[in-house]
Design a protein around this nucleic acid. Sequence first.
DNA 1: GGTTGAGACTACAACGTTGCAGAAATGCGC
DNA 2: GCGCATTTCTGCAACGTTGTAGTCTCAACC
Lengths: 336, 336
Amino acid sequence: MAITLHDVARLAGVSIKTVSNVINDYPHIRPATRKKVEAAIDELGYQPNLSARSLRSGRSGVISLLIPDLRNAYFAELADAVMRAARAKGLSVIIEQMPGGKKEELEILRGPRMQLVDGILYSVLALGEEDAHHLDNAMPMVLLGDRIFNGPKDHVTMQNTEGARAATDHLLSLGRRRVAALGAHPGEVVGSAGLRLDGYQQALAERGVEYDASLVIPVISWHRKDGAEAMRAFLTKGVPFDGLVAFNDSMALGAMRVMQEAGLRIPDDVAVIGFDDIDETRYSIPSLSTIDPSKDQIAETAVDLLLERIEHPDSHAPARDLATEFHIVQRESSAI
Amino acid sequence: MAITLHDVARLAGVSIKTVSNVINDYPHIRPATRKKVEAAIDELGYQPNLSARSLRSGRSGVISLLIPDLRNAYFAELADAVMRAARAKGLSVIIEQMPGGKKEELEILRGPRMQLVDGILYSVLALGEEDAHHLDNAMPMVLLGDRIFNGPKDHVTMQNTEGARAATDHLLSLGRRRVAALGAHPGEVVGSAGLRLDGYQQALAERGVEYDASLVIPVISWHRKDGAEAMRAFLTKGVPFDGLVAFNDSMALGAMRVMQEAGLRIPDDVAVIGFDDIDETRYSIPSLSTIDPSKDQIAETAVDLLLERIEHPDSHAPARDLATEFHIVQRESSAI
DNA sequence: GGTTGAGACTACAACGTTGCAGAAATGCGC
DNA sequence: GCGCATTTCTGCAACGTTGTAGTCTCAACC
């Protein structure tokens, strides 16, 4: 069967523990011994059995990434960034999708799968502040997204409010005064939707533009389809508008499509800006202005924090809240 | 620490082996005993240690999905489909990206990571027929994509040639006679590019349209950006054309964008059809006709085949080649 | 020359589970 | 009620690794 430490030890003429020590970079080994062992490893093509290592040491070198849905370009790009950051640290990533709401999220969080991994990156979708106690266990975890603040776990997020304020201000600075907001979750205060709506309102206030509730378009699920449908409904109401801040790019793209079908010119009639800077925004017609949340930075920061928690399980350092930088990316949809 | 079989056994008043038997659905257990054990499991919240199970039984319940790049919508959607199919069978999925070419692919295939998983779904990108011997090992594996046929492993793919023929014929049936092909890999016979070019030529021949090499646009990497650049270069040549078969949707979308910038109307001046049926094609402007390769069917078939190989490691049944169905999806880009 | 200590290596046990072999209890046929 | 097969349950060993606690050697020191 597979080569084990025993085989290597026999060939090199040392104990299995010495082989183990070589592999784990234990310092006190004579160069000659190290060489012998390494030669034997190469000759046999030895590969450590990760299950055994994990059983004995309690570390598997695998982390979980819990996201709502890979079909959503933002999460696919985030997953890509996380996997690159993780691989740079020698970690593998198990992705779990959780499209099924709160019950499923809790089930997955408590399932036996989570036993296998050293830590969890959890992009919270359904759980809210009131569920924070469910996370209050020993498992190293870093939260992404914006449903839970001041929770028991480290938290990495973009600056939602500031980002939305900057996006809105960007359209206002172009002279637009009837700026719609697409993607609100009515009644929600926390969560990306609530925070971004807050930023939208702040920007209006700063420019002295009166807030008009009829310009706020609610969309629960932030997919392209939902953005398209919400915009279609909004257009039938006939509310005049000359700008659109969409709370993510997918909705923006869906909405742009509907607006153009309806004969609206972008950016001439309506200037549009989205959120996330997904790849597609560079190639849509027109290309879409957006807020770049620095996905790479989010991923790297999150992996670093998680690794720290994994390596110092006893450190009861308080949970940290980190916000990454964002950048306005101006493209054709808000060209002057 | 974590609850083990010992804790459950103690509480239920049975041996740990009996608990293990209950968990593994061993048939000869008295209902009363089973009940006692299950009650103890529930009370303690016992969860099996997957590392120990994997070490002892050689099965981890995890499979690997090796794909080039999650940023590519086709692979993100394929990964989504695979993960849903895998979860339905009780499997977890570790995704590994391999953007780095042949050397990296072989490294990952041989790396210690692969030791942890029960089987591999491998969407071959860089490896070719000549590397097939590298796969000739005991690891259960199902190949996706079209670089390696008649290899040592099971293989699931779409009907590339037939799909391309249908796509091309679709444009010809609209009366187009100068149909360009975007995404060829010059000199390649096997692989999606080669097969699809073949189907393109077959369709031309069947309709009695002469093959014109100047209508074949080579693109090595099938991203949106590459499609856009290739189309830009093609337009400067001034070759007249009224139809475009793109070998995937991303390239088609990039090319559509460039064509529209150049003032070409779609479908009036150029009818376009792509490949993959990614979500975005429904919402692009115009929406993009495409060949739907039945990603769900590919994923389910591949997972089923893999599971079969995992469960019958000694069956030396010969490698199978399965092709899934495809469908033409007509949208605005090839509307009559 | 004896003590000390660091360096280099090793033996053993343990991580939590399951396969195997077998023991004890039960059922069946006559 | 006896032999035999089946059901039900158990003890032990093993999977391959690493942590702990050593042993042994040799140089340095007083």
